[in-house]
Amino acid sequence: MTSLLGLIAGFLSIIGGAISDHVPLSSLLNFTAFLIVLCGSFSASTLHFGLGNMISGLKAFMWLIKPPSVDLHKFIDQVTEWSSLARSQGTLALESVIPDVSDPFQKQGLQMIVDNTSPDDFAIILGTMAENAAHHQQIPAEVWEAMGGYSPTIGVMGAVMGLIHVMMRLDHPDELGEGIATAFIATVYGVGFANLVALPLGNRLKQLAKKMEREREVVMQGFMLLAEGKPGIVIRQNLSSFLDDHGKKKGKGGADAEPEAVAAPAE
């Protein structure tokens, strides 16, 4: 939510600056410039990434309101319960809890344990799924960063097109000032969209993707221990070592460092 507030504050700062300089807000509104910059940036990015990835990128805008996240404390409690269930009733008993799991990654991990997948294959499959998920979650950031790269140039194109139109009306000198001002609105749209929306949003989505990747590493560690038949207390101790008091992963370098796998004690 703070990211969304930052986005709104950026637009308000531009509007406030225009008002303080006695610039009519109506002069900042130009549908033609809007069409050129936004549609042009979208079209160029669609050519770059394909329509499916573009749709994923646009949907990821909602991450500003509700960022995707894994409640690791809740997951540790769950995987501890699953371990107790599997050790007391066998791994087939975990089949009953699969419908209650909403996360596809966790659901696949449980299904492979129920199917008695070998440890080597389990690690390979789960690792491949994690890599695919990480790649998919990086795409929205790349989409917005690309749009931020294209929009200023397309804004300049819009300005040049506006100036061409002005030059064609040199026989109306009273219209030159307004025409030139209108032409440069496309540049304002292009630069403003890139630096107030697209590039900051791309960087924010990249941070969220890395956060989800780190959370997924903890989930993978939990399923590896569960597949090995470790007791619940061992799993809890191991996974808790990845967390600080705020539920974030920690490492030797502090709360923001990459975690290292903690070797589980022998049963």
Rank of each mutant, 00 (worst) to 15 (best):
L7N: 04
I15K: 02
G16S: 13
I19P: 00
I19L: 15
H22T: 10
V23K: 12
P24V: 02
L25N: 00
L28D: 00
L35S: 12
G40F: 02
F42Y: 13
F42M: 11
S45K: 01
H48F: 14
F49R: 06
G50E: 09
L51N: 07
N53T: 09
I55V: 15
S56W: 00
L64P: 04
S69L: 05
K74D: 14
Q89R: 15
A93M: 09
P99N: 08
V101N: 03
Q111I: 05
S118I: 04
A123K: 15
T128W: 03
M129H: 08
A134V: 00
G148K: 05
G149H: 07
Y150C: 04
Y150W: 13
P152L: 05
T153C: 11
G155C: 11
V156F: 14
G162A: 03
L163F: 09
F184E: 02
F184L: 15
Y189N: 03
G190M: 02
P200E: 03
R204V: 02
Q207H: 07
K210N: 12
K210V: 07
K211D: 07
R214K: 05
E215R: 01
E215W: 02
E215I: 01
F223C: 01
F223N: 01
M224V: 09
L225T: 08
P231D: 06
V234M: 03
S241V: 06
H246E: 14
H246F: 14
K250W: 10
K250F: 08
D256V: 04
A264I: 12
E267K: 10
E267N: 12
